[in-house]
């Protein structure tokens, strides 16, 4: 049904008043229906227009190739990159810890043998040692010196490996920079989306944040008043609670 113009509306309204004054129920119904239908038809037209606009906006948005690329390729890539960071750092930590496990017994053995030889040596210096015992000591010293050379070489090698294992920092740092770049790009695109969708809705309620939710390491802890910066702060806070 076509929307009525102002004259037609006035005519329909007067006809309705007439009908009411004359208590003509059938005509009241007919005139009321005519007015309402006209009104609804205008509303439907408006909704149709809005739907068309929304459809076009979504289509335009879809043809933005970069956005399609972001959702299809970059987002899954980013997940992989972040998993890579976890994997690489885990490997590096295990590698370093492994070399520490290999090195500690070497250092301990050197220390213990040296302490034992030193004790014997002091007895020799104090002239408390028999000739037989001194011959034994000489043999022990002779056997110890090549072991020192060998262990020191191995310790050096292990320390070099530990240094090499720290290369993960370079690799993961680069990957994380890429992720930061992508996050910035997604942000820019989301701002565009908000503009396409019209005025952003003003949110009435503040976002509810659970203060106990685990967040992992805090970035920029210095700028967050509810975050402690080190173990001393933790200890102070706990002792202020009578802990």
């Amino acid at each position: 049904m076509e929307a009525l113009n102002k004259t037609e509306q006035l005519e329909a309204a007067r006809a309705l008043i007439n009908a009411i004054e004359q208590d003509d129920d059938d005509r009241i119904k007919t005139e009321l229906m005519a007015l309402t239908n006209a009104r609804e038809s205008a509303l439907f037209q408006q909704i149709g227009k809005l739907t068309r606009e929304l459809h076009e906006a979504l289509n335009n948005f879809k043809v933005d190739a970069r956005l399609v690329d972001l959702t299809h390729n970059d987002m899954p890539d980013t997940r992989d990159r972040l998993n890579y960071v976890i994997q690489t750092t885990e490997e590096a930590a295990h590698k370093t810890l492994g070399y520490i496990d290999k090195t500690l017994p070497l250092a301990n053995e050197l220390k213990q043998t040296a302490a034992k030889l030193n004790e014997s040596w002091q007895r020799f210096r104090n002239r408390e040692m028999s000739a037989t015992e001194f011959r034994d000591l000489s043999r022990e010293i002779e056997a110890y010196l090549p072991v020192v050379t060998m262990h020191a070489g191995e310790i050096h090698n292990n320390l070099s490996e530990m240094t090499l294992a720290q290369g993960f920092q370079d690799l993961t740092g680069q990957v994380l920079r890429q992720v930061i770049g992508l996050v910035e790009e997604v942000e820019t695109n989301l701002v565009k989306l908000v503009k396409v969708a019209g005025q952003p809705q003003q949110s009435g309620e503040a976002k509810v944040v659970d203060p106990l939710k685990a967040e992992g390491p805090q970035i920029n802890a210095k700028n967050k008043p509810n975050v402690v910066n080190n173990q001393d702060d933790v200890d102070d806070l706990l002792s202020s609670l009578g802990f």
Binding site: P211, L212, A214, E215, G216, P217, Q218, A221, N226, V227, V228, N229, V234, L237, L238, L241, F243
Partner: peptide, 13 residues
Amino acid sequence: TAETKREQIIEAA
């Protein structure tokens, strides 16, 4: 833990 918010430390205590 790496959790360093005051609310969390108080909660744990």
